[in-house]
Design a protein around this nucleic acid. Structure first.
Lengths: 117, 117
DNA sequence: GACGTACTACGATGCCTATCGTACGAGTCG
DNA sequence: CGACTCGTACGATAGGCATCGTAGTACGTC
């Protein structure tokens, strides 16, 4: 019942200086991944992969989380059997000030406009 | 020597309301297209396709401009033999306030950081 | 150890796309 | 008209990618 320790399984992340704008934009240009990021931003905390109820299989979900991690948008840590996901807000805000908030705002506006969020 | 009239050849553009964030992000996630948009924004005016000296063939250049147009990022008009390209700043700013400037700022920062612009 | 849960790895598939080359159309200038 | 420039269309190619299914690994619990 105590919170599980961080596993030794390591996951490769790009350094802050390795994050490329093109990669971030590509990662966010997929509706499924944009949805994940919006949810992470809304909660403002780490979420497990299984928390998300996406209309794709778990294999595909794994794929999307990997794309987000490898592009530098999220940080992933194993915690027991769960894999926690958190936005790399500090890194992104440092590299691209205001961009993440603009993107989230744009996504929110579109959701209102199109009527799905 | 008089400026040529707008040709009758029409080009399909998405309406403002049809522009989707995912499409815009995807369009800008390509280095060649991001470069085109940065240049258009820097000049702040319409530019002909031939103005750009991209390291790809003309066929590929045509392809990139079409992607930018169909995603709603630029507007294209034939003017004589030239095809003028202009950012759809008004539409983008209305749909996604602040996003374009954040993206351009992010691209500029990265260019300084990586050392190519 | 046995079982269940959370996530992964791998292969397959079908689609999208960045690129090229060549051949062509539209417009301007002489 | 003829020559030239600008850009398009089409086909080909090679690589990327979103998706799935199945089999498997890591971890916690009993």
């Amino acid at each position: 019942m105590t919170s599980p320790a961080v596993s030794s399984r390591a996951l490769p992340h790009p350094e802050r200086g390795e994050i490329r704008l093109e990669g971030v934009l590509h990662a966010l240009s997929d509706p499924m991944r944009l949805r994940i990021v919006r949810e992470l931003a809304a909660v403002g905390d780490e979420l497990s992969c299984s928390h998300f109820d996406l209309p794709v299989t778990k294999s595909t979900t794994t794929h999307h989380f990997r794309v987000l991690r490898e592009s530098g948008v999220i940080r992933q840590i194993y915690r027991g059997t769960a894999k926690m996901n958190g936005l790399r807000r500090d890194d992104l805000d440092d590299l691209f000030p205001g961009l993440l908030d603009s993107l989230l705002d744009a996504a929110a506006r579109q959701a209102v406009r199109v009527g799905s969020g």
